[in-house]
Design a protein around this nucleic acid. Structure first.
Length: 223
DNA sequence: GCGACAG
DNA sequence: ATCTTGTCGC
């Protein structure tokens, strides 16, 4: 399993150091075949980190890693809680994803280095962040239809989009992670949300990590 | 100082 | 994230 910083100060230093490596040039993958979804489920300090690879809507590869949290949840340092397990899971795939769809922010972060940027930089793979709620920035309510979007602004900069993925449902917050531009990130998220508010990748990864965590917890109880 | 704060 | 039943709406 990968390890990371031990203190808040060290973690912030790591972000400050890695942020310069983020590539926002784009455009990024236009017709990716393999798209990965990543998610982590917790039960106390135990976790199950899952990565699933979809080819269209079919899961063609997956990896799950069980472990113990080594970093608490601290707003702004969320990545240090999830990266170790997710990185290990990514290494266990037999497929190389063309895009990582992360459950959280990318550039829409206080230091412009959220989970999606972090995973993108350390793997070198294109990545986008899709969060269920905003973390930083201001935005206007987007139009009511699927595809409607508004800018997420932070210090006068566009750090993401509030994107409506289904008619009359709350928007999701899309931001660039690494090696992709915002327009492409939004296009890929719309591709992945033909029916639900959240990307199919995220939904699939969520099911996998929750089930894996439950299985390990049940086994814990059984002995 | 106070409140808010990805998952 | 997680704790948790039923319930309103498409």
């Amino acid at each position: 399993m990968h390890t990371g910083p031990e203190t808040v100060e060290q973690a912030i230093a790591v972000q400050e150091s890695l942020r310069s490596q983020v590539d926002t040039a784009g455009p990024g993958p236009q017709q990716p075949r393999y798209v990965a979804g990543l998610d982590v489920a917790y039960a106390g300090d135990e976790f199950a980190a899952a990565v699933v690879v979809l080819d269209g809507l079919e899961v063609v590869d997956r990896a799950v890693v069980l472990g113990r949290t080594a970093f608490p949840y601290v707003p702004g340092l969320f990545a240090f809680r999830e990266v170790p397990g997710l990185l290990t899971a990514l290494e266990r795939l037999r497929t190389t994803p063309e895009l990582l769809v992360c459950d959280g922010q990318g550039l829409a972060h206080p230091r412009r280095f959220g989970l999606a940027c972090h995973l993108g930089v350390v793997t070198g793979l294109p990545s986008v962040g899709v969060a269920k709620t905003a973390f930083v920035g201001t935005w206007q309510e987007p139009g009511p239809r699927r595809g409607d979007a508004s800018e997420l602004l932070l210090d006068g900069e566009v750090v993401g989009k509030a994107l409506r993925t289904q008619n009359k449902t709350k928007p999701v917050f899309v931001s660039v992670g690494h090696r992709v531009d915002l327009a492409t990130a939004v296009a890929r998220v719309l591709d992945l949300t033909p029916r639900y508010r959240l990307p199919e990748t995220t939904r699939a990864a969520d099911r996998v990590c929750r089930q894996a965590l439950k299985d390990s917890q049940d086994e814990e109880t059984a002995r």
